[in-house]
Computed example of a mutant assay.
Amino acid sequence: MGAKGKIVLFLVVICIVLLIPFAANAGTKTEGAVVSLDTPTINALSDKGCIEDAEYMRGHHMVMLEQWRDDVVREGDCTYTSSSGQTYEKSLERTCFSCHSNPDEFCSSCHDYAGVAPYCGDCHAMTDAELQAGR
């Protein structure tokens, strides 16, 4: 077998190896993450909308939260104006968690499903006293 034949054989073997995971999962359907919106605050709302539409929040919430963090910490800008014109405080705890008071069910279910480990809890699990002390 010449050099060209070895290269072609090598490429075929690599393609087969790379396609094995796809072939193993072919025809199977994976259920998405189960998100619980069952909180007393959300249940009491007549309009169950978030600060932006659900599709936007699913795809861009982390970008929004990182931008909020930068705006608040670096610029002192603490007010968010939504696309509908409503204003909100740029606060994970006081804005987001005021409705989504079930982060273990709401946040963690999607983050676990997607295999991501957000670092929000590095700061937001601390008490206000610990934050003010600079810990």
Score class of each variant (00 low, 15 high):
M1P: 11
K4F: 11
G5K: 10
G5V: 03
K6L: 12
I14K: 04
V17H: 08
L18F: 14
L18K: 09
I20P: 02
A23Q: 14
A23T: 08
G27D: 10
T28V: 06
T30A: 07
T30G: 01
E31H: 06
E31F: 07
G32T: 09
S36P: 02
L37A: 06
T39R: 09
T41P: 04
T41L: 03
I42S: 03
N43E: 05
N43H: 01
L45V: 02
L45N: 11
G49L: 09
C50I: 04
R58G: 12
R58L: 15
H60W: 14
M62L: 13
V63L: 13
V63P: 07
V63G: 11
M64D: 05
L65W: 15
L65N: 08
Q67A: 12
R69P: 03
D70M: 13
V72P: 10
V72G: 13
R74M: 14
G76V: 03
D77S: 11
D77W: 06
C78S: 13
T79D: 09
T81V: 14
S83H: 14
G85S: 07
Q86N: 13
T87W: 06
T87H: 10
T87R: 06
T87D: 04
K90M: 15
S91R: 00
C96F: 02
S98P: 00
C99E: 00
C99T: 00
H100C: 04
C107W: 11
S108E: 05
S108V: 01
S109T: 08
S109L: 09
C110F: 10
D112S: 06
Y113A: 12
Y113V: 04
Y113L: 02
A114K: 11
A114F: 10
G115Y: 07
V116L: 13
V116K: 15
P118T: 04
Y119Q: 09
C120V: 02
A125I: 00
L131N: 00
L131D: 05
L131C: 05
A133V: 02
G134R: 01
